[in-house]
Design a binder for these strands. Sequence first.
RNA 1: GGGCUGUUAGCUCAAUUGGCAGAGCAGGGGACUCUUAAUCCCAAGGUUAUAGGUUCGAUUCCUAUACAGCCCA
Length: 467
Amino acid sequence: MQTIDPVRYEKLIHLQSMGIAPFGSRYEVTHSSIGVIEGFVEGNEIEVSVAGRVVSLREHGKSAFANLKDRAGKVQVYVRRDVVGEDNFAVFCGLELGDFIGVCGKTFKTKTGEITILVENFTFLSKSLRPMPKEWYGLKDIETRYRQRYVDLIVNDEVKETFITRSRVIRMIREFLDKRDFLEVETPMMQSMVGGATAKPFVTHHNSLGMDLYMRIAPELYLKRLIVGGLERVYELNRNFRNEGISTRHNPEFTMLEIYQAYADYNDMMRLTEELVVHLCQNIKGSLQIEYQGQMLDFTPPWKRVTVCEAIENVLRTRIKGMQDVEAIAIQQGLSVKELLDDVLDHKIEKELVQPTFVIDFPTILSPLAKSMPDNQEITERFEFYISSQEIGNAYSELNDPIDQRKRFVDQNAEGVDEDFVRALEYGMPPCGGLGIGIDRLIMILTNSASIRDVILFPQLRKEGDK
RNA sequence: GGGCUGUUAGCUCAAUUGGCAGAGCAGGGGACUCUUAAUCCCAAGGUUAUAGGUUCGAUUCCUAUACAGCCCA
């Protein structure tokens, strides 16, 4: 354990000796910092009370200026010894960057035209015992920024902006779907069987049931049970957990939006994707052309569509008529079809998918939960969509044939058959379109963030060493 | 998992070929009644991530470890 800064502790004791509580309580706030500035009318100066953190302090002998920061922004306050009295003025000058105070007084305009509060009285609200990085220089050390996000948020305004935007995006998604009569639901995050995606799960244990549980890697199989149950339009916007590598694009827990719509198919999901992303783009950025990490992205629909076969053709420069050709190439290269496709999509084609693009018509053998084409059992009605060379989402016409589903579980799923899910399908699931969108990655694009860690408040890091 | 890079004062950064580890800001003392990266004066602040090694001498070269970043798998 680290010891408390002796100088700051000394100040705390000094405050107490003067009868001032270093960690105060409730304070009546009438205005936010920006509210004070926006509400200012020359000739009609009003009494305001504002609370916030001291982020700068400029003493001038018998007066002093300070800036208070609150959730809205900053406001300047001006304290004069002849107004607040000698003792109070001394307390004010003893403030340190990071301390919280509440101030009360009338607004005025300084010589330089800045709207400022002339402090009539102030209340000490909370002592800061750690030195604060000076705002002008900021906090740049990326490890400290992630580990001590609270400091990052205090000092780096653009970080706060990013997370405010994130919150707005999430709210807009809910509004967008609610308007289309989708129902937000919550399904289990602790599941007795892994399903809905291919990924290693986190395992946990329920003591009184005496059973292992898996943190969900996807909510898909539960949401489709709800389609069986007649809810028809459902979505879930919440955390998934995957026990895999960590990178600028992967965090072990991440936020996923999954949408299921009865009587729809993957073409409807493509339209829904375009409409949702366009809606967010327009409302967050005010344009469908946005800059992301130095490249211009154009979200004007319809987005480009390319089939998986075309993608392979482009990469391998050979004609492909059907899945037999793909399999033949895979065998020739000593790969499985999945490996070939991973290689083509993740390493070759992905780089070229900068503009929003739907990659469509995936092989059935890689899509155990998707409905195959009516005229071709080897291809499914499925797409993934890419923006800025990142996979953002995945969707398909859902497989609603329980007999086929059981067979695919047996053939393609290492985890085996989810008997209850198949039982649900046996009761009958209407044709249905499903869509999953990686929300963190989408927010990276909407906030021009290079790393997924810049859009997750507390990203996963290794245990902190002794520094 | 592999490769490369980084870790120096609370923060942001210096340090020549291996030769006394330095600045700005923050913090401390003082001056100052319109400043806003306030200004001026003074003093202080360091186990150079950790553990070893080479060397008369290591922030600097070598090895290992920890954490982080980037790239690749």
